[in-house]
Design a protein around this nucleic acid. Structure first.
Length: 575
DNA sequence: GCCGTTTTCGGCCCGACTGTTTTCAGTCG
């Protein structure tokens, strides 16, 4: 999959063009194309083979040719020419926050700086303050910025950021004179990783809210502080921004700061065509600057004659067109979920008993759960022997009889062995309600072998679903090399469900693949893979990702009532 | 460089904050 490589190249070309002082529209075209490739569910090579590169949003004739060239030769001539033309390494300067193309050029032309080390030395020696529009403070900011770049503060998993954000939001709600408080940005869109936290609040007098924000105990450093906007760095290194607006502008501001950028650009272009202007304060008629809405998000969308669009869809992936035609999906919600089919207990590597897990699930309002401990090969995770599993089946049946208000099913998370066979014999699998087949070993196979391995597991009639189908661990491990399109096709053929694993560092399948599954009529099971009662709450993250994949209740098997779920699961076994 | 229910040419989102400056350029989101 070369999607990300090409996206990175396009981004670098954009940086180089910016340094050259090229038209910002051209620069933005490259950046938009890069984002488009990053979001693409499919392998760009497959799109190229079909000759449909120019169907990708933001990619026209010229960029399609550059992609083809890269796929053919492994490089883009235009990129190489730009690199030759400009001093080597100058784009790395732009990674320092607050340092853009103009400053990078200035630093190079006046001081010959092209590396972070040179920049650091110059700043320490006080040589930057002699440059135009630069002073002592700029030097300090640049030094701090260099440190930040070196720490490689990349995006963090959703689950690592949301709890902190919720804590900050709770504190702001207590501030004097505050009205509404909401997270915005990628956090509200439930992206799998979060670059920074956006918080929005309303208040007639912003001062007390700003004060509560910049003095919050989770704040490690204050980057800037204004009357309507402040930026801080939280303890975990994530940047957080607070904006305070008038109550009358709340909807417009929430819409604006929720993004995504591409969604907002498209929305505002639409507004312009209608003689309107949309900004964070409201929607205005261009001719007389009269305000026509902005108190709520619904008003903003209504002003451009669209229904309200759920934040998870706002990625410019067809949602505006769907809204236009009245074809927005009725997205699945947490309340639609009737049970959790993936969790571990003390029988393998979990922390609680089956009964404790079941009781916790009942508290969440579930109708059923399924206990799915690891299979025998997974020794380091306490894999369950065949004998023990048979005993567990009996125990869970008794437990389910005994517990009121929830049905407890028994299953297993069975390892898919290297050759695609399963870690229990069929006559054992037959006794289970749910079989999740997962890859936990031999990650470094090539795409074909790995895909064939999983497809073979799918053909087993007792395999209900494939667990965390690509094996990624956000920020720790790349997905194993697998052809998701073939997996989706295989799932469709065999009637196998694909899991959307809700562990916040997995979220696997990811949003784009979830949507791919839906488009091919493959059903998804959202499972928490909980190892403790508290982790059952990860369902929130899974539902968020499902919504980003446009899933409706009927696309998710664990929205089914128990009897329908069981007959759905039996369907594959009957063949 | 992309794109089209105004258009195949001429548009392309919009404002806040910083650090420096005496009115604003650069950067960011």
């Amino acid at each position: 999959m070369k999607n990300l490589e090409i996206a990175a190249l396009f981004n670098e070309i954009a940086d180089l063009l910016e340094i050259k002082g090229e038209s910002t529209f051209r620069v933005n075209a490259y950046r938009r194309a890069a984002r488009s490739l990053e979001n693409l569910a499919e392998d760009v090579e497959a799109v190229a083979d079909r000759g449909e590169l120019d169907q990708i949003p933001g990619i026209g004739k010229s960029l399609a040719e550059k992609i083809s060239e890269y796929l053919r030769t492994g490089k883009i001539t235009y990129h190489q020419e730009l690199l030759r033309e400009l001093p080597h390494g100058i784009t790395t300067l732009m990674r320092v926050p607050g340092l853009g193309p103009k400053t990078a050029v200035l630093l190079y032309e006046r001081l010959g700086i092209t590396t972070l080390d040179q920049l650091e030395r110059a700043a320490r020696e006080g040589r930057l303050r002699d440059l135009p529009r630069m002073g002592k403070k700029t030097e300090e900011n640049i030094l701090r910025g260099i440190e930040q770049v070196r720490r490689q503060s990349t995006r963090l998993p959703l689950g690592a950021v949301l709890p902190l954000a919720q804590e900050v939001v709770a504190a702001l709600r207590k501030a004097k004179g505050v009205g509404e408080v909401s997270v915005a940005g990628s956090l509200r869109r439930m992206r799998d990783t979060i670059g920074d936290v956006d918080v929005l609040a309303t208040a007639k007098v912003p001062e007390p809210v700003m004060e509560a924000f910049v003095t919050h105990p989770l704040v490690a450093q204050v980057l800037s502080r204004g009357t309507t906007r402040s930026s801080v760095v939280l303890r975990n290194g994530v940047q957080a921004d607070l904006r305070v607006v008038e109550p009358a502008s709340f909807g417009a501001a929430l819409q604006y700061f929720t993004g995504s950028k591409d969604h907002n650009v498209k929305l505002r272009e639409r507004a312009v065509r209608m003689g309107l202007k949309v900004n964070e304060y409201g929607v205005f008629r261009v001719e007389d600057d009269r305000r026509v809405g902005g108190r709520t998000e619904e008003e903003v969308y209504a002003a451009v004659r669209l229904p309200w669009i759920p934040p998870e869809l706002r990625e410019d992936q067809g949602e505006i067109e769907a809204a236009e035609r009245g074809k927005l999906p009725r997205l699945v919600t947490r309340e639609d979920i009737r049970g959790d089919l993936h969790m571990h207990t003390k029988w393998s590597d979990g922390q609680a008993t089956a009964e404790e897990m079941a009781r916790a699930a009942r508290q969440l309002g579930y109708e059923y759960v399924c206990i799915t401990d690891h299979s025998q090969s997974l020794k380091f995770a306490g894999g369950v022997s065949v004998e023990d599993l048979r005993e567990h089946v009996r125990e869970v049946r008794r437990l389910s009889e005994r517990l009121e208000g929830i049905t407890v099913l028994i299953g297993s998370e069975v390892d898919i062995l290297a050759d695609g066979s399963l870690d229990y014999p069929d006559d054992v699998l037959r006794e289970l309600d749910v079989v999740i087949a997962s890859v936990h070993s031999r990650f470094r196979m090539d795409t074909r072998a790995m895909t064939d391995r999983i497809l073979r597991a799918m053909r087993n009639p007792y395999v209900t679903m494939i667990g965390h189908p690509t094996g990624r661990l956000l920020g720790q491990r790349d997905p194993y090399s697998v052809d998701v399109e073939r997996l989706v096709a295989g799932a469709r053929e065999t009637g196998t469900v694909l899991e959307l694993n809700a562990q916040p560092d997995r979220l696997d399948l990811k949003d784009a693949h979830v949507r791919l599954a839906k488009e091919h009529g493959v059903q998804v099971a959202i499972g928490t893979d909980a190892h403790s009662p508290a982790e059952l709450r990860f369902m929130e993250f899974g539902v968020g990702t499902a919504r980003r994949g446009w899933l409706e209740p009927q696309d998710v098997v664990n929205t089914l009532p128990l009897n329908k779920l069981l007959s759905r699961l039996r369907r594959k076994r009957r063949g």
